[in-house]
Design a protein around this nucleic acid. Structure first.
Length: 466
RNA sequence: GGCGGGUUGGCGGAGAGGUUACGCACCGGAUUGCAAAUCCGUGAAGACCGGUUCGAUUCCGGUACCCGCCUCCA
């Protein structure tokens, strides 16, 4: 079995990936806080780690990979929206409205990610379903001296964990020096972070040994990962911005509670930028996935993201997205021209192009390199080696691409009636046979204006959406 | 201020110490009634300054510029 190499944020190096249990490779990725529509930046880790999930399933077997991605459904912004609705006269208790908001947001999220061709993870835990585990873990940290309760809060004692800061490469003292936040007076140390905090009257809360309150953000992931994947697991992923403080805190909590090694390989995807600047809610320069999907099909968006290595930042723009769509069109056009493509029972990884594809993927899942192999295959297919189309489709499938019917993809998204198009094509064919090229060209121009592109082939005229 | 990443052809974007990345676009040719698609072909790069080397875009050092994290954020 070929060894996959992955860049481990913890060691800042590319390492051979060796799962703790090859029969159950375990991966956790930080999911969204479900307070609103997901933006394009949210899509990047989903596509990146979906691709890794697919790769792991290929290497270790479909049933041997457990992938957990959570939903954070405890959050001020969710509460704020629920409260706004209540004040606007929506029926139901605040709790009902909170539930309503998270449910609708999760449904949007699923729809968006499905459109991007992302498989559903094995588990999608919601923070509110694991409050008991969070309380237990917090109590455990108090018992072992890693945390302390004060004024209804429970705080993690950062100085109690000597490796704090190791993942993000900073020392506690440096962090304090650079800190720009006001420090709550009850903290022993400015860097101590919240495990549990009290909730006031109308906020949702749970009974705990420290009074009615709710969990801090970081403990949620630790508790859910622990419950579903165990004390230590193979891969933990997320956006680069989560490395500090979120992932640093997760390590401190989990190691504090369980000891040992929490996560073997930490992986962080780079950002998606707008005009070379980070896209974020706070900067206000974001697009929702739903916005983008109005103009572009999800598969083009997926290809667009896979064109860049997952750790590199990349820019988003319509021009770049159009470029990705053109590239995807080339792939589907080759598949379409090759005729019916049989589903390959199994990929022969010894085949040179399959081997090249796999070599790229095994090397820190270099998707741009793997895509290059796909385009080489396109050339072969277009040159007449139509049998290669099956390999092309199979390899692309491991990236979650090219699984639609070519004709459906190439003609999809057109609002023009298919029968109408065919009737105009027939009329044009008749005109051509009569050598009335002016009329034929007129029809072609008429369809072009509707976004229909004609192709005259020996077997007859076909069409695609422009 | 501390820490980290980056600078590749017109644009996007990889790998590799010496041989075509790949995609989009452009140009020439084939094909076509003309196009489109496709094929063949051409052109085009490695921020700057040093060093190592027979040879560096690839390794090392420095300079410049850009970006990110240090604060809720994928």
């Amino acid at each position: 079995m070929v060894t996959i190499r992955l860049t481990n944020s913890k060691t800042r190096r590319k390492e051979d990936f060796r799962p703790i249990e090859p029969s159950n490779v375990r991966m956790y990725v930080c999911g969204p806080t479900v307070y609103d529509r997901a933006h394009l930046g949210n899509a990047r880790p989903v596509v990146v780690f979906d691709t890794l999930y697919r790769l792991l399933r290929h290497v270790y077997g479909q049933g041997h990979v457990t992938y957990v991605r959570n939903f954070t459904d405890v959050d001020d912004k969710i509460n704020a929206e629920a409260l706004r609705r209540q004040k606007a006269g929506s029926p139901g208790t605040l709790e009902d409205l909170i539930h309503q908001r998270t449910e609708e947001t999760i449904a949007w999220y699923h729809a968006d990610m499905d459109a991007l061709g992302a498989l559903r993870p094995s588990h999608e835990p919601r923070a509110t379903e694991y409050i008991g585990q969070m309380i237990a873990m917090t109590q455990g940290l108090i018992d072992t001296g890693h945390a302390y309760a004060v004024e209804g809060h429970v705080l993690f004692r950062v100085r109690s964990y000597s490796d704090y800061g190791k993942l993000s490469g900073r020392s506690v003292d440096d962090m304090i020096a650079g800190a720009r936040v006001e420090v709550a007076p009850f903290k022993e140390d400015p860097m101590d972070f919240v495990l549990w905090k009290p909730s006031s009257g109308e906020e949702p809360g749970w009974e705990s040994p420290w009074g009615k309150g709710r969990p801090g953000w970081h403990i949620e992931c630790s508790a859910m990962a622990h419950e579903l994947l165990g004390e230590s697991f193979d891969i933990h992923g997320g956006g680069l911005d989560l490395q500090f403080p979120h992932h640093e805190n997760e390590i401190a909590q989990s190691v504090g509670a369980c000891g040992g090694e929490f996560v073997r390989t930490w992986m962080h995807n780079g950002f998606l930028n707008i005009d070379d600047t980070k896209m974020s809610k706070s900067l206000g320069n974001f697009f929702t996935i739903a916005d983008v999907l109005k103009k572009f099909d999800g598969e083009s968006v997926r290809l667009f993201m896979l064109r860049t290595h997952y750790r590199s930042p990349f820019n988003f723009s319509d021009t770049l997205l159009e470029e990705a769509r053109s590239a995807l069109k080339r792939l589907y056009t080759a598949l379409d021209a090759a005729g019916p493509v049989p589903d390959l029972a199994a990929i022969d990884w010894a085949e040179p192009r399959a081997a090249a594809f796999k070599a790229a993927m095994d090397d820190d899942f270099n998707t741009p390199g793997a895509l290059a192999v796909l385009f080489d295959l396109v050339g072969d297919v277009n040159r007449g080696q139509t049998a290669d189309a099956a390999l092309l489709k199979a390899l692309a499938g491991t990236l979650g691409l090219l699984q639609a019917q070519p004709k459906a993809y190439l003609q999809g998204g057109s609002s023009v009636d298919e029968n109408f198009v065919q009737s105009r094509i027939d009329a044009r064919t008749a005109a051509k046979q009569a050598r009335n090229f002016a009329a034929a060209d007129g029809i072609r121009a008429e369809l072009a204006a509707l976004g229909i592109e004609l192709k005259d082939r020996p077997q007859g005229t076909t069409w695609v959406r422009a």
